[in-house]
Design a protein around this nucleic acid. Structure first.
Lengths: 254, 254
DNA sequence: CCAAAGCCCTGATTTCGGTCAATCAGCAAC
DNA sequence: GTTGCTGATTGACCGAAATCAGGGCTTTGG
């Protein structure tokens, strides 16, 4: 149908022409033919904050590109304790290849736009296009690096260092001024205090206290509990206690 | 030379014939031709406990298959705090593709056998053999799953749960009786108390206390500080507080 | 309007695990 | 033998963060 016929830009489906996933995501690996094939099976969806993406019927059997918004991945213990094991920002490829059942839950923490594909279509694409799998490998290696960075944070940092590290990570990912060595930054927190605490392995009370402390120290200002303005990125960085190695790391992430 | 000529087993280099990496590791992805090509460039090395693998000159520019022994990956903060972010058992492919500088250190924690390749040879192999990259993707996804499992442990478990979880993980990986639902197990700890504490984000004193507690409870016995006999795997499992999801997970790991 | 529910902040108290310190066993060097 | 070193264990004490509790603000819905 229309997806296939509207070919003006050297054979790229209209849906994909301005899509971030084609520029910075996995779809960049695909040539126009593959893109057309995949685009035929895709469906764009708007999802509101708080909706489960994996584990409910709709998405368990599909892969998606995250086109906008933020998704959290969580794991839970049987007694209710919860840990956020990943935060994903656009454009990110969602879904766990080669595994039927995942012990991980995914939930939209902001309004989210997805471009979803049937499981089978993506797996065919992976078989057919080495470059596609190559991108996936790169993304997975980056996720692994990030997870290991958080292992250090969870295992060896104090509460205040954890909160500072968290703010830096958010700033890196959703501040409008993308400069990694900026002097100041400003962004909306995608997570509630309780979610931040589940990310950092502390309680929401402790998160609250540490944010208050940072405000008292003049490092940040907060408006409407969600909007954070970092007045001194350098002080925030020093509070996050970055290792020397971490410093080099943050520069070539992304 | 000899590697190329000694072809008796349908073209497989002698070095590789009985190699675990060909059976359960990434080399299984290679056909005889590729295997011969790679084997020409490889060098087997014995490395003793305590030796740095990455960061010193010898290995920074190479990839390796871990054929025997255990390797720890660590990250450090500038003030000396350290966190183990990965433990790798044979047969595992070591090395971080697509990145010149890694902020991670690797060190042999037991005697180790490596089969090392020049960086360029492996990267050529990755380009040429999609199946090779596929295996690498699978391994990386498994590592990511494990890292996320440890995020839960570090962020949300108590000291005793951490130690119990650690023992279970070690048992899974190096117990002779590979049965995942065994009633008992027995193995040598590859890590010192201090290293275990760096793995779990606690102090070595706490590790020691938790181990004595487990001994007092009759869950384990310890000989020579390194050899652990788990008398009741079920009690150990319940002390690790596995989530329901974790249980399904441990079964299809590997 | 008021009520109820979330989310956030703050204070008081408790506790788990960290810190500091002593002791001991094993082992290598002299 | 002694000395010294490293790793493990145990105890006494302390402190950072958890727990418990109260109260404020906003939103939703009667």
């Amino acid at each position: 149908m229309s997806v296939r016929r509207h070919i003006h830009t050297s054979g790229i489906p209209v849906l994909c022409v301005h899509c971030e996933a084609r520029h910075r995501g996995v779809c960049g690996a695909l040539d126009p033919d593959n893109l057309v094939g995949l685009a035929k099976t895709c469906s764009r969806r708007q999802i509101e904050s708080g909706v489960e993406l994996i584990g409910d019927a709709q998405a368990v059997d599909s892969y998606s590109n995250l086109l906008s918004g933020v998704v959290k991945l969580t794991k839970s213990l049987s007694d209710g304790r919860q840990q956020i094991v990943g935060l994903q920002f656009a454009p990110h490829f969602l879904g766990r290849p080669f595994k039927v059942e995942s012990s991980i839950n995914a939930e939209a923490v902001t309004a989210v736009t997805l471009c979803s594909f049937p499981r089978a279509a993506v797996e065919r694409m992976m078989k057919g296009s080495p470059e596609f799998e190559h991108r996936l490998l790169k993304q997975t290696l980056n996720e692994l690096d990030e997870a290991r960075e958080w292992l250090v944070t969870l295992g060896r940092k104090t509460a205040s260092e954890k909160v500072a590290s968290f703010l830096l990570m958010i700033a890196r990912n959703i501040d409008s001024s993308v400069d990694p060595v900026a002097r100041s930054a400003s962004f909306d927190l995608p997570l509630t205090r309780a979610e931040i605490s589940d990310f950092l392995g502390i309680t929401n009370e402790t998160v609250s206290r540490q944010l208050t402390q940072l405000r008292a120290d003049g490092v940040i200002r907060i408006e409407n509990t969600r909007h954070v303005m970092v007045d001194s990125m350098s002080r925030l960085r020093s509070m996050a206690m970055p290792s020397l190695s971490q410093k080099t790391d943050s520069l070539d992430r992304l």
